[in-house]
Computed example of a mutant assay.
Amino acid sequence: MKFIVQWSGLPTAENAVIERFMKTGGQTPEGVKLLGRWHAIGGLHGVAIVESDDPQAMAALTLDWGDLLTMSVFPAMTDEDLGAAVGKYQAARQ
């Protein structure tokens, strides 16, 4: 399953975030595949798309950075997946 991961942090955490990112490369835990990650310019904000079937690995991802960043994780669907779900919903209503 794909997930959207959003994060933000306070400016006071910037040096610690940079240090950890440079040390770890921002690697995801085992069981979480990073599909893409984007960082805002000029702040501790960003978004990543990850894939995992392991809720414990997803929890580990948020715990790895939870002391420095506020993270939100949402299940994600592609256009094709959403289209199939909407089509199934519409068919059931007819």
Rank of each mutant, 00 (worst) to 15 (best):
V5H: 02
Q6W: 10
W7F: 15
S8E: 15
S8N: 15
S8W: 13
G9W: 12
G9R: 13
L10W: 13
L10V: 06
P11N: 05
P11R: 10
A13T: 12
A13N: 14
E14P: 09
N15H: 14
A16W: 02
A16V: 02
V17D: 08
I18L: 12
I18C: 10
E19M: 05
R20E: 09
R20K: 14
R20G: 00
T24G: 05
G25P: 00
G25D: 09
G25K: 04
Q27V: 04
T28P: 07
T28W: 02
T28S: 10
E30G: 03
E30W: 00
V32T: 07
V32K: 04
K33R: 13
K33N: 00
L34C: 10
L34G: 06
L35C: 04
L35E: 08
L35I: 14
L35A: 03
L35W: 02
G36L: 04
R37C: 10
R37T: 11
W38A: 05
W38F: 15
H39W: 12
A40Q: 12
A40V: 07
I41V: 14
G42K: 04
G43M: 02
L44F: 06
L44Y: 03
H45C: 07
G46Y: 06
I49L: 12
I49H: 02
E51V: 07
E51F: 07
D53I: 08
D54K: 00
D54T: 09
P55V: 05
Q56F: 02
A57T: 00
A59P: 00
A59C: 08
A60N: 04
L61P: 01
T62F: 01
L63Q: 09
L63C: 02
L63H: 02
L68D: 02
L68Y: 07
L69T: 03
T70N: 13
T70P: 01
M71F: 02
M71S: 04
V73T: 06
F74Y: 12
P75H: 05
A76I: 05
M77W: 14
M77E: 14
T78Y: 08
T78A: 03
D79H: 10
D79F: 09
E80Q: 13
D81V: 11
L82P: 04
L82I: 06
L82K: 12
A84V: 08
A84R: 13
V86Q: 12
G87N: 12
G87W: 13
Q90G: 10
A91Q: 15
A92S: 15
R93C: 06
